[in-house]
Design a protein around this nucleic acid. Structure first.
Lengths: 174, 174
DNA sequence: GATTTTAAGTTGCAACCTAAAACTTAAAAA
DNA sequence: TTTTTAAGTTTTAGGTTGCAACTTAAAATC
């Protein structure tokens, strides 16, 4: 049945201790983020995605299947109409919101001519949300200059004393 | 010369006022984020990317060209060795770091068996950075339940008084 | 100075994936 | 009972990816 198999070499085979290749396994596909965005905007059904995205039927079918297999969406037969199937975000899917907003904000900031309307806001006071940023454990905002890589083992060991050098590597290329 | 043309329909034609499709135009390509990550890790040269990523030569060549065209990397001939070319992150490229870390953290959290080592930390105190999250303008952390869409026009108009309903749309599907 | 090696690409080709349109199946509406 | 709707498959053409071999220019080595 499933004629569209995934024979591409998985990205994550190559990079051991990093979540990024794993994340890209499903979300790095063309259309994945657009489908996710449509889900966040309240679309549930196959034909709705079809109309909204202008994607081909077979590709949509394939991508939805992959998102379901990846645990990002869940399929649920519709109670009142047994032809219909609802695609809904799982907790795992909902948890992609910060990444998606970060990408969206980046696109707004750097790609020309995007007035960005409507705007994502806090429901409490209706003010636009802050830019997604990197924060230290105590809330200070950090830039790429403030970051370094440290080895998991040194983390546990050093809690406050110990020599300061250990396996600290400055984030290069910046 | 450039035999690999981009004939795919651009994603952003379909979705007017949103930065996401624009962002995905370049970063939605397979390998784009992996190349970006390699750049953040201090790789500059073609052959370095080749060894690190296990990508095909021609694909790497094509992706680097697109990233340069997209203003995310810049090409710079190497001063001391005129065979070499350095690919370096632009400001626009550096600004993708929050989105990339958000994706990486998501991958770590949800994809099984990723011990995630080394860990990204604050250089000042060597403590791991916080999870990337959505924040209100005043710093409160927000979840998808706290969000809504508001129309740009109402934003300007309503500053504190005016009727509260206007064009506020709850983020659905959640 | 001639030959080899390195760096960064191109080119050719087979396998793979995508897109558009037509077809299928089951359930609901008319 | 026939038509319409929802959600897929199948077919087929054409675009994309990946591997290996080739190219070009500059540096290193003999």
């Amino acid at each position: 049945m499933d004629i569209m198999k995934k024979l591409r070499e998985p990205l994550h085979e190559l990079a051991e201790n990093c979540g990024l290749p794993l994340a890209l396994e499903t979300m790095g596909e063309r259309w994945s983020f657009m489908i996710l965005r449509a889900s966040f905007n309240g679309l549930y059904h196959f034909e709705e995605f079809l109309d909204e995205l202008g994607i081909a039927r077979n590709i949509l079918s394939n991508r939805l299947t992959r998102l379901v297999e990846g645990g990002i969406l869940k399929r649920a037969p519709c109670a009142d109409d047994r032809r219909k199937i609802e695609y809904r975000l799982t907790e795992k899917g909902l948890d992609l919101l910060p990444a998606m907003i970060a990408l969206r904000q980046w696109g707004e900031r750097w790609e020309t001519g995007v007035p960005s309307n409507p705007v994502l806001a806090d429901e409490r006071d209706h003010k636009p949300i802050a830019q997604i940023a990197i924060h230290a454990h105590d809330g200070r905002e950090l830039t790429h200059n403030d970051l370094c890589w440290i080895d998991e083992n040194d983390l546990r060991a050093s809690q406050s004393n110990s020599r300061d050098d250990a396996n600290v590597k400055k984030l290069a290329g910046i």
